[in-house]
Design a protein around this nucleic acid. Structure first.
Length: 900
RNA sequence: GCGGAUAUGGUGUAAUUGGUAGCCACGCCAGACUUAGGAUCUGGUCCCGUGAGGGGUGGGGGUUCGAGUCCCUUUAUCCGCACCA
């Protein structure tokens, strides 16, 4: 019987579903393991061959863990709210719910063909009201919480209110405040809060965006310009958790590069918050600096144009210039500011600050190179040792005073992190690294300021002026926001017939009649951003049908956290930050037992496209084979990779591909048309999209799964190349053929050795996520086994292979090996070192580090014995030429090196 | 500019973690068989050399008996952040 994957695979997929093979329940008798894939956003284009890479890896690991005796939770769902479906709806009028459902169905169909072992009974979809009820629930909880700096955790806002009522907060007379003032005051503390703030506004999308959704001043989705605009928005106080988000990274098994991206994004910097007196007023100007050691080199001050004291500090004769500059800054988009970073601009305010250490009066400028959102929005400028300050001083002819020895400050600033201090009075002669802590002390001692930690991490803007997202469960009473009672959740997304913004620029929900509470109070009209629904989905999978809690105590205490999370690196500063924040908040609330949601994380690489080209001779219009193009002036044209095999063009298919090529003429080499190729992004316009369904049709899911793993290390990006898939397919066919007549004959020592070597190699490789080398190990194993068809060898091998190729192994388990239950209830074969014991070892012998000959010796000899045996060898005498060795290096079972 | 990663045959890659560089595949070459295939099997395939031998892991230098692996330096490519004081 031939290996008929077209019949085997659908049959077993149906059978597994029927038997509920992959359903899991809480089972305290077994150790748990939780393997999670980042759930996909179902786009209209369907899956290409790159998408399942991570799913295949996690599926292999899940099956491996299950075969090793773990109770493995391995769920899947869909991140179903989002911009593309809504943009599509605006263009076509199709309801996003409809397109999303269609796309999910298509994804599901494609995924099912690959034989994944998801427990689909736990599926979640973020746009499902029974799911987003809990997204809204968490938002309400955040609205009703504040971050208590003393306890270093989130607490109910009612505790803060109680303190206020008891008059325990100095300077706040709570009783004297009106409801609006009280609401505004609490907004400064709530973890979900509304604020009038500068936001990333995208005109084309008609919505605000979070920092991680903006790249180079353009929206990540669609690439539209983004500008800074002051708007009233909902935000999450992620910054309150900055320190815990940073510290938690040290406890995680994530790649160092990913942790580094998050550390940079959080951007902790320790410095001094210092006050400078202003000569012309009794204001004290507050600045932040990480380099107090350079204070003797401060020759001017700079404020951000948006700084609140700009007006006050501007003298009448400078007023016009300052106002013009502030107005001009406001008009420039974020993109223009980025593009013009090299251009120096700024205006003097006319006021002067007093350097607290030198008593010098120094001018105060405003310039847009100082950001209003970071530190205090004001800096002390040290042109000698900061390149931006240097450029500014040069442009305005300000003095440059060096305070660290070295560099040539006439040509450029000397941004030194070490070196001897000069011109610096009390710290002269100290090294920069000593001077910094010394000055921190001095600043605090003199009462000029205090140590302060700053973070780059900003609060996340949480409202979107869109339709296709979770409604924010807030209503307004006299313009004061209140959270909906938890009993009224979910607040369902209402039907609309027009998905574009209203004529007044409000979100689509603003045109919904009756978008209000039972008592007639208006509801918030913006919706939640994409990351809302994905922030706690891993918890919901633990207990997906629970209507009374996000997750039951019992389920959470059993499954706890995700042991292995697989997904793309692109979520480093988005989802993976928000999810950790969300989890820490739920931890503070006492809802979950672990502080970190994803213990180990593996980032699979991206699969790029491999494009093929044909070359049309400009003169004759004929198509020239790639090896011959040198003699012609040709035009390179993308050709559909699906009509090319091993870079050889199917010329007949090419003629039918497009009408314009129907009469194509070819110039062949060796009777074939060879195509050129290049690595590019996988996209329709490059005709290099390879569809997994097609590969499954041609080779089967097991081949596709193994080949994707064989392609290279999981974490590395690589182009998809269908050339080479034959090798894996051939392996499975050979494996299948071994089972034609299984015998009970006793295996030879050599066969047992091969088997155990393979068990050892494959299990170690799976543990280390080195799937490419484990696939190679299977191939080596088969090469060594030859035509062995003994049950004692094939049965353990089948179980070992099952995680990679579930269909073929399940089929053989039943049809050839005669078992009845699923192979996935079997146990992973264990490695027995006894079979690998060697009686002799062939030593490579090198003379002066150069390999000269080999010497076979029994194992277990002492280095002295090996040395003696090697020296007696004839070959050694030849290379030694009668000399006695100066030294010999003998590493038992490794190498012998003679030095003469 | 700052931070991180990578660099090995024609191609994808491997290397017991400092110990025979190129495993396993693709491709290519030669052969066998044949129901002439997108089939199967066998052998060969880093470079120079008939050979003994020599050279070789982006470049240069170093440590070591011994370096793809460690250190310094340099180049190229990719990724992240970017006027963050």
């Amino acid at each position: 019987m031939d290996y008929n994957f077209r019949e085997i695979e659908p049959r077993w997929q149906a059978e597994w579903q029927k038997r509920g093979t992959y359903k899991v329940e809480v089972d305290p008798s077994k150790p748990k393991y939780y393997v999670l894939d980042m759930f996909p956003y179902p786009s209209g284009a369907g899956l290409h061959v790159g998408h399942p890479l991570g799913y295949i890896a996690s599926d292999i690991y899940t099956r491996y863990k299950r075969l090793s005796g773990f109770n493995v939770l391995h769920p899947m769902g869909f991140d179903a709210f989002g911009l593309p479906a809504e943009q599509y709806a605006i263009q076509t009028g199709r309801h996003p719910a409809k397109t999303t459902a269609d796309n999910i169905a298509r994804y599901r169909e494609q995924m099912d063909k690959l034989g994944f072992c998801y427990d689909w009974s736990r599926e979640v979809e973020t746009c499902d009201p029974s799911y987003y009820k809990w997204t809204q629930w968490a938002f309400v909880k955040m609205f009703e919480s504040w971050y208590d700096p003393e306890l270093d955790q989130a607490r109910p806002i009612s505790e803060l209110v109680a303190k206020l009522e008891r008059g325990e907060i100095p300077g706040i007379d709570w009783a004297a405040m009106n409801p609006w003032q009280q609401s505004d005051y609490l907004m400064q503390f709530r973890l979900a809060y509304r604020a009038d703030t500068m936001v990333n506004w995208c005109e084309a999308l008609g919505t605000v965006l979070a920092n991680d959704e903006v790249k180079d001043g353009l929206s990540e989705r669609g690439g539209h310009p983004v500008e800074q605009k002051r708007m009233k928005q909902w935000l999450l106080r992620v910054s309150a958790y900055a320190e815990r988000l940073l510290a938690g990274l040290d406890t995680l098994e994530w790649s160092e590069s990913l942790k580094e991206i998050q550390r940079n994004w959080i951007g902790k910097s320790t410095g001094a918050q210092m006050f400078f007196d202003v000569a012309e007023s009794n204001r004290k100007l507050e600045i932040f600096t990480t380099r107090p050691d350079t204070i003797y080199g401060v020759t001017f001050m700079v404020l951000a144009p948006e700084h609140e004291w700009v007006g006050e500090l501007t003298t009448p004769q400078n007023r016009k210039a300052v106002e013009d500059y502030v107005a001009a800054t406001k008009k420039r988009s974020e993109r223009e500011r980025i593009a013009e970073t090299k251009r120096v601009s700024g205006v003097a305010t006319g006021s002067h600050a007093i350097n607290p250490f030198t008593g010098q009066h120094i001018p105060i400028y405003i310039s847009d190179y100082v950001l209003s959102g970071y530190g205090t929005g004001a800096i002390m400028a040290v042109p000698a040792h900061d390149s931006r300050d240097w450029a500014f001083a040069r442009h305005f002819g300000l003095p440059v005073v060096p305070v660290v020895e070295g560099g040539n400050i006439d040509e450029a600033s000397y941004d030194a992190k070490a070196g001897r201090m000069i011109n610096s009075d009390i710290i002269n002669g100290l090294d920069v690294r000593e001077a910094i802590p010394r000055m921190f002390e001095e600043v605090e001692r003199r009462g000029l300021g205090k140590l302060k930690v700053n973070y780059r991490l900003r609060d996340a803007i949480f409202s979107r002026q869109r339709y296709w997202g979770e409604p924010i469960p807030i209503y307004y009473k006299d313009d004061i926001p209140f959270a909906l009672p938890l009993s009224e959740l979910p607040l369902r997304l209402p039907e609309v017939d027009d998905f574009s913004p209203t004529r007044t620029g409000e979100p689509p929900l603003a045109r919904v009649k009756g978008w209000e509470t039972k008592d007639g109070y208006p509801l918030e009209t913006s919706t939640m951003p994409g990351f809302a629904g994905s922030s706690a989905y891993y918890l919901r999978y633990m207990d997906p049908h629970n209507d009374s809690a996000l997750v039951s105590r019992q389920a959470d205490e059993y499954w706890r956290d995700v042991d292995l999370y697989i997904g793309g690196i692109e979520h480093a500063t988005g989802h993976l930050i928000y999810s950790r924040f969300w989890d820490k908040f739920l931890f503070d609330l006492g809802v979950v037992v672990d502080q970190e949601p994803f213990k180990k994380l593996v980032n699979q690489g991206m699969i790029q496209g491999r494009s093929n080209f044909v070359y049309r001779d400009k003169a004759s219009g004929r198509f020239i084979s790639h090896g011959l193009i040198d003699g012609y002036d040709t035009q390179q044209i993308h050709v559909d990779v699906n009509i090319v095999r091993n870079d050889i063009l199917d010329t007949e298919a090419f003629k039918q591909w497009r009408p314009e090529f129907a009469d194509a003429q070819f110039v062949l080499e060796d009777g074939r048309y060879v195509c050129g190729w290049a690595v590019e992004k996988m996209s329709k316009s490059m005709y290099n999209v390879v569809n997994p369904d097609r590969i499954v049709e041609d080779y089967g899911a097991d081949t596709l799964r193994m080949y994707e793993m064989f392609l290279g290390p999981l974490e590395q990006s690589k182009p998809w190349d269908t050339n080479g898939i034959d090798g894996v397919h051939k392996f499975l066919k050979r494996f299948w053929n071994l089972f034609a007549s299984v015998t009970d004959a006793a295996p030879t020592p050599a066969e047992l050795k091969t088997l155990h070597k393979t068990i050892k190699k494959v299990s170690e490789d799976i543990e280390h996520f080195s799937f490419n080398t484990s696939v190679a190990a299977f191939m080596i194993c088969l090469n060594e086994l030859g035509a062995c068809s003994k049950r004692a060898i094939l049965e353990p091998l089948t179980v070992l292979l099952a995680p990679f190729a579930p269909h073929i192994t399940e089929e053989l388990w039943h049809s050839a090996l005669g078992h009845t239950g699923t192979i996935f209830d079997a146990r992973m074969p264990t490695f027995d070192p006894a079979y690998l014991v060697e009686s002799s070892f062939e030593y490579p012998v090198s003379v002066n580090g150069k390999l000269r000959f080999k010497k076979s010796l029994p194992v277990g000899l002492s280095p002295t014995e090996i040395e003696a045996a090697v020296l007696q060898d004839e070959a050694a005498q030849k290379w030694l030429e009668g000399k006695t060795p100066k030294k010999m290096i003998v590493v038992p079972e490794k190498i012998v090196n003679i030095v003469i």
